[in-house]
């Protein structure tokens, strides 16, 4: 069963004063199965947050239709809001309230009260390690604690679908790692479907079952990280450390897409390492070039991102 199903979503923002219009989404279709961590990658202004906001019922599309957990985002928004929640990287709460008060307030908005509310708030304070900061007003909390509070708030209603909009934006690496571990545990332990936007390739690769690249309001590619690397065909990289002989003409061999040589090190970007490596080694052997070290690596997701963002 699908957690998210969208067909032809289009959204244009119009400025009343300058009469400028910006197309944030153009005919986007998407299907996300339940229980999956789905990543949306793309440069700034690609339309990631717009798509998430439409699915979270915070924004109305101009055209197209979308359903979340089987409910239409326009006609059945109230039912969707019971079952989803959202945490974003730049989230903010009322400045003079304390973490426990913030969680209690939003807990009540989700219909929690009495012992159930108190237990839920206590559980989330424990889960997100907020116990040491309960007496601190929101505006005096550090960015990392604010972000953990934001995640705690997004779990108040035990959502079936969680939208995470750049959840580790601006966080220190150690806090990001802990937050990512909490996100991974959510899917593992509760089966929560997660729709995640991020700028960080490592985060996408570590957390997401599937990734969609979005740019200019359109989804350009979709698949697992490995599928995307193959799909984009930016090649694999063979790194060699060589000794003796001349190897400057190695770059002219068939199947070599890129060739960089510096001192005794050579990097060849090839269409298929399995096919090209034996040819390269034979060619070097015939010219009495000794191979001291060979390393083959797949392209990084970041390289795929750069390629697609061009």
């Amino acid at each position: 069963m699908l957690a998210v199903e969208a067909h032809g979503l289009t959204k244009t923002f119009r400025s009343v004063f300058s009469r400028r219009s910006t197309t944030a989404l153009l005919d986007v279709s998407l299907a996300v199965p339940r229980g999956m961590v789905f990543g949306l990658l793309g440069p700034n202004g690609a339309g990631k947050t717009t798509l998430l906001s439409i699915l979270a019922t915070l924004l109305l599309p101009d055209r197209g239709r979308a359903s979340v957990l089987g409910h239409d985002v326009i006609r059945e928004a109230a039912r969707i809001r019971q079952k989803v929640n959202m945490a974003s990287g730049n989230a903010s709460f009322l400045w003079s309230l304390r973490p426990g008060e913030i969680l209690t307030f939003y807990g009540r908005l989700y219909g929690l009260y009495g012992m159930r509310l108190r237990r839920r708030v206590d559980d989330l304070i424990g889960l997100c390690e907020l116990a040491d900061h309960l007496k601190t007003p929101y505006n005096e909390l550090s960015t990392g604690i604010k972000q953990r509070l934001n995640l705690a708030k997004s779990l108040l209603n035990d959502p079936e679908l969680l939208f995470l909009d750049e959840p580790t934006l601006g966080l220190d690496p150690d806090i990001s790692i802990r937050l990512r571990a909490q996100i991974a545990a959510l899917r593992r332990e509760r089966g929560t479907t997660i729709l995640l936007t991020t700028h960080y390739m490592r985060e996408a690769e570590e957390l997401c079952d599937e990734i969609a690249f979005i740019k200019g309001g359109q989804i350009l590619a979709r698949g697992t990280a490995d599928q995307l690397k193959r799909q984009i065909r930016i090649g694999e990289v063979i790194s060699l450390r060589l000794e003796g002989g001349a190897w400057e003409e190695l770059g002219a061999l068939p199947g070599i897409l890129g060739f960089v040589s510096k001192d005794d090190r050579v990097e060849c970007t090839v269409d298929s390492a399995v096919e090209r490596l034996p040819t390269i080694l034979r060619w070097l052997h015939e010219r009495n070039v000794a191979v001291r070290h060979v390393d083959v690596r797949e392209p990084e997701l970041e390289e795929v991102f750069v390629e697609l963002a061009k």
Partner: peptide
């Protein structure tokens, strides 16, 4: 700047 949390809730 927290208005969206309110309107995200039921």
């Amino acid at each position: 700047k927290s208005v969206k949390h309110q309107f995200l809730a039921p």
